[in-house]
Design a protein around this nucleic acid. Structure first.
Lengths: 345, 345
DNA sequence: CTGAAAGCGCTAACAC
DNA sequence: GTGTTAGCGCTTTCAG
């Protein structure tokens, strides 16, 4: 915590009795430096604890090797955190640094200052790791015109002209519903997440369509809207028990709410999976340890972040070669994890 | 996603027919510009969508308004994520940008490249938001000498010459143990976290000392080591049931493991809180919805991050005024949250 | 009130 | 192989 001034390329050059250019060649591993000079300079660099300034480099090379990351919901949810983990590990692998911004709310309106903070620091690209909620993508077409770097959006309805990477919530919902039907259940209810969320709508729609295909188009009373939280999961389940008493299986849109369902069921003496099969969504760390262990749909949020960075980096490279970048919509597969809560009757 | 080149101060100056200095004065809100000139330039800035380059500024001002944040465990734990949330919100408030790095493991050895990545981008300070685990603070005294900016460490044993901000795990553990005793329980067991962690050791020690003070110095058989995970919580609890059959209360070092305890208890027909009072630690979002609702110790991880940024910013200001910075060890209070799992017999 | 010159730390382009 | 010149985009200093 001393306040050593950092050594600059000039200090090194002076100490070595060469020009800064020669030092520059050494730190950039250029071939045209005599072996002796190189060794001498490397030694001095070591002695002086010299580190090239990435800032100065960014300025002249018009490239910062820094990406902007915009996230939201770190306080309440583990999802953004897992995605961030995928982002940091892939970025480290590809040698990019990350500038992090967090939106105070999923639907924060005022994103211009945030974008400008990133752009003023010359990020090479931006990952928008905020789920699509309500109308929070309204600005995309308008503002993106003014953004001079590639942007990759996570967890958003695929659309033309924009690169998106999302988990395939629809096919995940199909997997969940089909599994319950395959277990011989016929009266399958659904507790959704907040339907303002694109993900919640996808999962619900998958349930509806899969049920319809099985010849049992669901009625309104077979469904209840939650908001992802345990509290709302309780309320939604209680409502469903009233409105859909013959229910023998329920697809719950996330594991948190599924936990509430299990707890309430115990309290009311409803046997799981005997009376009611339960499947969640997410595969959080705790779900194997629920009682009974929760059947769920695994979504790889780490991979989501990693893929986003990979795409972004590849677009940056493309641009660097003066080629045109092609928008891309990527969907990641989900996986059914069968545990006890959905076992056969 | 177009590739508009960014406008520079030169473009603005040329368009306004003034020198770049005058533009500089306007964007820095200096008084010595005629009102008309100012208005004209502001208009042009607007038209050109001009944004000053923070990079160029950082270079000349020797100050980047950027902080480095080092975290770890984003994939498995919600704690780092909550802390990060406190960091992002306080940083936004104080107008700092954040460069994020994540250690692959809590005890990653090779931290030099990571520090250099941050320093090469001229961060004004660093928050080390990684818990103290095993020997992962070994480098502090040695390496910190070479770091030319202030560093604040989170969740670490207070020590001289270093600024630390931590939750007071010891007093939290005292609160937990005292509460169980106050409920009339006498046989209080403890399931710890991974004792490689400083936090786990603090909580355990608090339990030991509080019990001793109450005249019931705990024996080895009243304790079992977990590793924070549900899986290990199960194992530890099962062991405790064997080794300490008269146990009528248990202080579990985190809420995840406490969940496992509740589940196992149900399976074995142990009544909670009748036969066994349970208290957790952390106050995760789900714990009010456990069955029964979990009594726990709340730790404010958001505040932890926010305080760290506040201290760091204040140290940076101090340095800016050429004053000396004083290392500081801050402990944040915890809070007892009483719910059903520890109710009176 | 405004401008010219110098320079933050580095590299591209050219010379020798 | 190595040095010189210019300049990335901005601010500081000084002159007027």
């Amino acid at each position: 915590m001393t306040t050593n001034k950092r050594a600059t390329i000039k200090h090194v050059a002076k100490a070595a009795g060469v020009s800064t250019q020669t030092v520059s060649r050494v730190i950039n591993d250029r071939p045209d430096v005599s072996p002796e000079t190189r060794v001498r300079i490397l030694q001095i660099i070591e002695d002086l604890n010299y580190q090239p300034s990435a800032l100065a480099r960014s300025l002249i090379q018009q490239r910062s090797f820094t990406l902007g990351v915009v996230t939201s919901g770190l306080k309440e949810y583990i999802g953004p955190s897992r995605t961030l983990n995928g982002i940091t590990s892939k970025a480290a692998e590809l040698n990019y640094a990350l500038l992090l911004e967090e939106l105070p709310h999923f639907d924060t309106e005022n994103i211009k200052p945030l974008l400008q903070s990133l752009l003023s620091r010359h990020v090479d690209g931006i990952v928008w790791a905020v789920p699509e909620v309500g109308d929070n993508r309204r600005w995309v077409d308008e503002i993106l015109m003014d953004v001079p770097v590639p942007v990759v959006f996570l967890t958003m309805q695929p659309r033309a002209r924009v690169t998106t990477v999302s988990v395939d919530n629809f096919s995940g919902g199909v997997l969940a519903t089909q599994h319950l039907l395959a277990q011989g259940r016929r009266n399958v209810g659904h507790i959704s997440g907040d339907l303002d969320w694109w993900e919640a709508r996808q999962r619900k729609q998958a349930w509806q369509e899969t049920m319809a295909k099985a010849g049992t188009k669901p009625q309104d009373r077979q469904f209840s809207e939650g908001n992802w939280s345990c509290a709302c999961g309780e309320a939604a389940f209680n409502q469903l028990l009233q409105s859909y008493p013959e229910m023998d299986a329920v697809f719950v849109a996330n594991d948190q709410m599924a936990l509430s369902v299990l707890q309430i069921a115990h309290q009311k003496g409803i046997k799981i999976p005997g009376d009611l099969a339960v499947i969640g969504f997410d595969n959080i760390t705790e779900s194997p340890f629920f009682w009974p262990a929760l059947t769920t749909i695994n979504q790889d949020q780490h991979e989501l972040g990693a893929r986003a960075i990979q795409e972004l980096a590849s677009q940056i490279e493309t641009l660097q070669r003066n080629e045109k970048i092609e928008p891309l919509n990527i969907l990641l597969a989900t996986e059914l994890i069968v545990r006890e809560s959905s076992a056969n009757q």
